[in-house]
Simulated assay, not measured.
Amino acid sequence: MLNGIRVFDTVLDGLHIKDTVSRNSADFWKPFCKSAGWKFSHERVHSLNDLEYFFSKKIKEDIVIFSGHGNEDGFYLSNGECFTGNELKDFPQKNHDKVIIFSSCLIGKNEELTRGFKSYFKSQVIFSYRHLMSDRFCFLNESILLTTIEHLFNKGKLSFTQNDFINFQVKTEFMKNMNEKHVKLHPMVMT
């Protein structure tokens, strides 16, 4: 069984940059985790300083989700700063070995960036998207992915492999054009 999910949420809508509460993926993940029997915690982050503060604390959950804007350059915070893993001091060892999900657009399009994130977090795996994504389709893909991972762990599997991810992609292939038409590749990638 998965220990739980920690969400780091940042504001998406640049037109409402002073609105620091309209984006809240916790509205989806909190009831989902409750129904799955997983722990859940949520932090609102607005700056690199916020990230550094929260990273310095023990993250007890196995899954860490970054929810907000992204592109091939990195993950954008409410104040406009971009997180790539190079801006902060080393990620504390007490928080290594997590599963990291970037629930944001286009980060998965930059293989060097995702490898850099994996190295920075010393994570088991990084999941990200190579396409533009609407929140609802991120939630759909991620909830199926995490349920798949839990199912494999409950069967005694100790890691989620590239072959497991390929099986996930095959089983969710029918969803690849829900978010955007004419998509040739599954929107989610694993590093």
Score class of each variant (00 low, 15 high):
142 E>C: 11
51 L>I: 07
62 D>R: 04
100 I>Y: 02
75 F>D: 04
115 R>P: 00
84 T>V: 10
81 E>N: 14
86 N>D: 14
113 L>T: 06
118 K>T: 02
56 S>M: 01
94 K>Q: 13
67 S>A: 14
141 N>T: 01
133 M>S: 02
143 S>N: 02
49 N>G: 14
59 I>M: 12
73 D>H: 09
118 K>S: 09
73 D>Y: 10
91 F>T: 08
122 K>A: 08
141 N>D: 11
117 F>D: 03
104 S>G: 15
94 K>W: 00
63 I>H: 07
132 L>W: 02
126 I>L: 01
134 S>A: 07
145 L>S: 08
64 V>P: 01
132 L>T: 09
153 F>Y: 13
143 S>F: 02
85 G>D: 05
123 S>C: 15
151 H>I: 03
86 N>K: 15
75 F>C: 04
111 E>C: 06
112 E>G: 01
100 I>S: 03
146 L>K: 08
112 E>S: 13
100 I>M: 05
72 E>Q: 13
40 F>M: 03
143 S>T: 10
43 E>Q: 14
114 T>E: 04
127 F>A: 03
51 L>W: 08
132 L>C: 00
151 H>W: 10
82 C>Q: 13
93 Q>G: 00
133 M>Y: 02
134 S>T: 01
55 F>Y: 15
83 F>G: 07
60 K>F: 08
86 N>C: 04
41 S>I: 00
136 R>T: 10
133 M>T: 05
99 V>H: 06
96 H>Y: 14
55 F>H: 09
58 K>I: 11
41 S>A: 07
107 I>F: 06
140 L>S: 14
52 E>R: 10
110 N>L: 02
79 N>Q: 08
116 G>K: 12
54 F>I: 11
50 D>Q: 00
58 K>G: 00
119 S>N: 12
58 K>V: 12
88 L>V: 04
69 H>I: 06
83 F>V: 07
115 R>E: 11
124 Q>H: 12
51 L>K: 08
151 H>P: 00
89 K>P: 12
73 D>W: 03
148 T>A: 09
53 Y>A: 05
87 E>S: 13
90 D>H: 12
143 S>G: 05
92 P>V: 06
153 F>V: 00
53 Y>N: 11
44 R>W: 11
82 C>L: 15
143 S>Y: 02
116 G>E: 06
49 N>K: 15
97 D>Q: 12
106 L>P: 00
104 S>T: 14
66 F>L: 08
63 I>K: 06
106 L>Y: 13
81 E>H: 09
130 R>N: 12
153 F>Q: 10
128 S>P: 02
61 E>D: 15
144 I>W: 06
148 T>L: 01
90 D>T: 14
132 L>V: 05
138 C>G: 10
44 R>L: 13
63 I>L: 12
100 I>C: 03
47 S>F: 05
85 G>Y: 05
108 G>E: 08
136 R>C: 11
145 L>H: 07
46 H>P: 00
54 F>G: 01
84 T>E: 09
104 S>F: 04
42 H>N: 14
115 R>A: 11
125 V>S: 09
124 Q>I: 04
89 K>C: 04
135 D>V: 04
121 F>L: 08
115 R>T: 05
150 E>S: 14
61 E>V: 07
149 I>W: 10
82 C>D: 05
93 Q>S: 11
134 S>N: 07
72 E>L: 09
56 S>A: 13
53 Y>H: 12
